[in-house]
């Protein structure tokens, strides 16, 4: 199915409700935070207290995730990542934002990549936290880390256990807001933190198509086409994204920097928020 780039003048209030948009801070520069698969805008809460001091921070949930309005869910649209990118495009258009700093986690970063391709005007710079342009090992020599059968089995396990990746972890994630001291000790309890924050999601009706779109897609071909300044933040030990994938992603971009954070897990923005912030700040200073 082809998804056309939106040229519709959507009602801004409608989009705000649909994607549960929250705007924090008063800064001039707009920063858009895009969550990954099985997550919601909640995942950014360790970064936002710092970001909102300098920026206007836009938080949102894709339709089918978090507190979005699931009445707007269309299976066709959200069975491919372009549908999620269209959410981003419509959000920017409805709020009349362009040239934003886009920060995406995991598949959220890939969604940013697609957005930058479809609507280069909307994005100024692209920050990708633990991105993978393709999770599959392919016979052209690329190793995304997983055989197709592994990922098929993963989706099958989701089906058989009838879950949308621990949907009931959401309240727990919301309850565990860390204090300043917690964040300072961020590396100490990284394992527990990572586990507690790993996945929270919605109904399998919505998460299964998202899982399939996430795990079986291949957007490597877009990387060389994106000339925006990009930052790839890679975890040293990530079960979902091997370090080689981070290196590959950086090399394929015409204009990208790679920061490897000496940590464990796939949610660096939650387990090492200060290091992620620092990395973003350095990147912004260097690319000014």
């Amino acid at each position: 199915m082809e998804i056309s780039i939106s040229n519709t003048q959507f009602n801004a209030l409608e989009i705000k409700r649909r994607n549960h948009i929250n705007i924090l801070g008063e800064g001039e520069k707009v920063i858009l935070l895009a969550h990954g698969f099985g997550c919601s805008q909640n995942m950014w809460r360790f970064l936002t207290p710092y970001l909102e001091k300098q920026y206007k921070v836009i938080l949102f949930d894709y339709v089918g995730s978090g507190n979005s309005d699931v009445r707007a869910y269309q299976k066709n649209r959200y069975s491919q990542l372009e549908g999620y990118a269209l959410d981003v495009i419509e959000i920017c258009d409805s709020l009349d934002f362009s040239n934003v700093l886009f920060v995406g986690h995991s598949v959220g970063a890939t969604i940013g990549l697609i957005t930058a391709h479809l609507r280069p005007d909307l994005i100024d710079k692209l920050v990708m936290v633990c991105p993978s342009p393709c999770f599959l090992n392919l016979n052209d020599g690329y190793s995304g880390g997983f055989e197709k059968s592994d990922l098929e089995e993963l989706v099958n396990l989701m089906d058989k256990n009838y879950i949308g990746w621990g949907n009931y972890l959401a309240p727990l994630v919301m309850n565990s807001t860390p204090s300043e001291t917690d964040i300072k000790q961020e590396t100490d309890d990284a394992l527990v933190q990572e586990l507690l924050t790993s996945f929270c999601s919605t109904d399998p009706t919505y998460s299964k198509p998202f899982a399939i779109a996430t795990f079986f897609s291949d957007y490597r071909h877009l990387l060389p086409k994106i000339h925006h300044p990009c930052l790839v933040i890679q975890s040293k030990q990530d079960a979902l994204v091997p370090i080689e994938v981070g290196k590959y992603t950086q090399k394929q971009f015409p204009n990208a920097k790679l920061d490897i954070i000496n940590g464990k897990g796939h949610c660096l923005h939650m387990t090492y928020p200060l290091q992620v912030l620092n990395s973003i700040q350095c990147f912004l200073d260097q690319t000014q």
Binding site: D150, L169, V192
Partner: peptide, 16 residues
């Protein structure tokens, strides 16, 4: 491999 991912992202958090 898929089950290990599943254990890490579902089983352990739920146990905790």
């Amino acid at each position: 491999k898929a089950s290990v991912l599943f254990l890490e992202h579902y089983f352990y958090p739920m146990l905790l």
